[in-house]
Amino acid sequence: MTIAIRPRRRWRLTLATTLALAAGLFSTAGHAGPTLDKIKERGSIKVGVGTTPGFFSPDSNGHWQGFFVDYGRALAITVFGDPDKVEFTNSSPQQRLPALQAGEYDVLLSGVTVTITRAFQLGFHFGPTVFYDGQGILVRKDLGVTKAADLDGATIGVQSGTTGELNIADFFRKTGKKFTPVTIEETSEFTNALESGRVDAITQDSSDLVGKRTQLKKPDDYVILPERLSKEPLAPAVAGGDDRWLEIVNWTVNATIQAEEWGITSKNVDEFLKSQDPAVQRFLGVDPSLAQAIGLDPKWAYNIIKTVGNYGEIYDRNLKPLGWERGYNSLWTNGGLLYSPPFR
């Protein structure tokens, strides 16, 4: 028996070794050293972003702005104490994940959904979820619909060839209601279909729907239903192989959430410097022992809050004007999903 198995095992071993060697070869070619060393040597962080209103978009002077862009600046504050030591590069959805592996970016803040396939197979790590997105439904108000289950017999526009098409079909099969799907190829056609009455509702990721709603002639005549048909947690992604860089990403996000929980904002952060709460003292660097232990500038969290603001401020500045409700993206104390581990 052993004799019969041995040659096969040896063959497998050879294959495994070859693959490992090849992987090693590619990974050394891809990332020469830990990401953080490269960042410090370069003097700036390379961030891959996309173009979605409110999340990332250039203003008229070519200055990047948006929810994820602010997190890129927060990272630059943690590493360099300077919000401008960051270089944003536009990444297209097709090339962003391989480009991250190839070392084109230090961190992807382009709204990547965390999935198990990506976590296991693609060789990079996700930071904490900064935005809980999900597939939503945009309907005309005059239909009198308040929840997705009311949409029995409705005509719904879906983007062809996306998971959105599957999700909506699954949803209606589960609820036992009927609907007529209308597949739409061009994303710009969605608003036309809705306005002309060709469809009663359209369904896409709610981050897209919010942008679509503002493009309608009368945005106030339409409403996004509260249900989310899919889970799309958006998180920063970093290439594997530099744990310290991953932790910096993790705790930069956590700091903005923790600050909101304590009620620390960019306006009142200086008053909190006088706080007697030892946890707040550690957080803001009044007591430098924690920062010294982890090897960061004692003022890192203070600088982030002072410059960029806490989670709520970042959210309100970028997403509230577009009509975003906090929803799942509220603090856990308000019934949302945002929860920062303790700073101790």
Binding site: G48, T51, T52, P53, G54, S57, P58, D59, S60, Q65, T89, N90, S91, S92, Q94, Q95, R96, A99, G211, T214, Q215, N318, P321, L322
Partner: peptide, 23 residues
């Protein structure tokens, strides 16, 4: 545009994603 270089077309398209001038 597919490799993230901001050519003429890409620059014009992303101009319309600015919340100040949306859509």
């Amino acid at each position: 545009a597919v490799i993230g270089i901001f050519d003429l077309l890409n620059a014009a398209r992303s101009s319309a994603t600015d919340p100040q001038w949306l859509g």
